[in-house]
Nucleic acid binder design. Structure first.
Lengths: 203, 203
DNA sequence: AACATAACCGGAGCGCCCTCCGGTTATTGC
DNA sequence: GCAATAACCGGAGGGCGCTCCGGTTATGTT
């Protein structure tokens, strides 16, 4: 009979053998160089070879660290969005817990639109990650929204509604609305609010 | 004083000088070859060079005809979606005119989900066209939905709501829900219905 | 029928994303 | 300190989307 203790390491194989010192140094160099280049020209004018050259690193190293272009974008994004993600769970209301879920849904849209205003291009690159198995940036937001929807509108399919709401805030669509259509952010904010209100209204 | 007749040609400069015979022949060869290859392996396993080779045509010809990969996908899609697009405007209710707008909105979702079930991968490639100035396949649907929303729910921002609803039916998201999440189509159908009902309910 | 011209053709080539592999280096146990 | 080993490094190279341009061909006119 196999003891459960012997099986535990198999259940948690994610225990990476700890990052080597030179690898960590390179990762930081890459991130710093990439952040500089992106701040200077925008992500769409920065190639992976550019980043590798600026970080004095081979392209192989770049890809082993971050998987692909979307992974690098996600890592760059992480610095800018961790505060927002923390505020969703631990922060003060209305973004964090402490008020009705419908109100938190409205606050989420406002906060996420702020993120989009600043990093929509980076997010647009990062979401492509979902097509390579890896989890993209939307995973966390989807589950968060699903929880809020389940509480604010129990009659709805919470997971489906969460993805639908998130689709509204898709980075590429945001850029389209803002740049091609020239819509002001206020229009998107009030649109989100109206959408949430309609969904959370009592039947 | 300039007569309006003299100005008319300037207002309609889109009068292309008529396609040359060899160009038309090549266009058809390309479309046929591309349709064969896509039917055989799926769009994601067909490169532009593959299509050019199969059509016995240079890649330059391919790109002059269709602009880019998304344009070719759109052209392939056109054969399969024209019937649906016509039904939206001229067809019998509930897809076509003759019933309340809310009911037509529900029917649109059902019909579009049928299209997605069959051509989501092609659509996913075609929507990238919007990022190169050219109009993608969603333009028509967006305006159609906006008209219906304006009639069914005048209190809403019709254009914004139309884009939001369309975002729910985004091809890439559809594939994600169907393949990665394993959701059945029925879940997406009822989700769409609930969404439309919530938005078109009286305040 | 011959010409002028505008449209069209093909494929070489560029930049990009990403993979692969032989050589190198940090880490661990002794 | 030293050897064994596992992780890491760099860059050459493949596949792909797309562009560019010198040569070719169809079309309308004389």
């Amino acid at each position: 009979m196999i003891g459960p203790v012997a099986e535990l390491p198999l259940l948690q194989p994610a225990q990476e053998p700890r990052e080597r010192a030179d690898a960590a140094r390179n990762r930081l160099r890459i991130l710093a160089a990439a952040a500089d280049l992106v701040a200077e020209r925008g992500i769409e004018h920065v190639s992976m070879d550019d980043v590798a050259r600026a970080a004095c690193v081979g392209t192989g190293t770049l890809y082993r660290r971050f998987g692909d272009r979307a992974g690098l974008a996600l890592a760059l994004l992480d610095e800018h969005t961790r505060a927002f993600q923390d505020a969703l769970i631990f922060g003060p209301p209305p973004l964090g817990p402490g008020v009705p879920a419908a109100e938190r849904l409205r606050a989420f849209g406002d906060g996420y639109l702020d993120v989009l205003e600043e990093h929509a291009d980076l997010l647009a690159v990062a979401v492509a990650r979902a097509r390579r198995g890896q989890a993209g940036p939307e995973q966390l937001y989807a589950t968060h929204l699903a929880i809020l929807v389940r509480e604010a509108a129990p009659r709805l399919d919470a997971e489906f509604t969460a993805l639908s709401l998130l689709a509204t805030l898709d980075p590429a669509r945001h850029l389209h609305a803002r740049r091609e259509l020239g819509w002001p952010v206020e229009r998107l904010r009030s649109g989100w609010r109206t959408l949430v209100d309609a969904l959370t209204a009592a039947p």
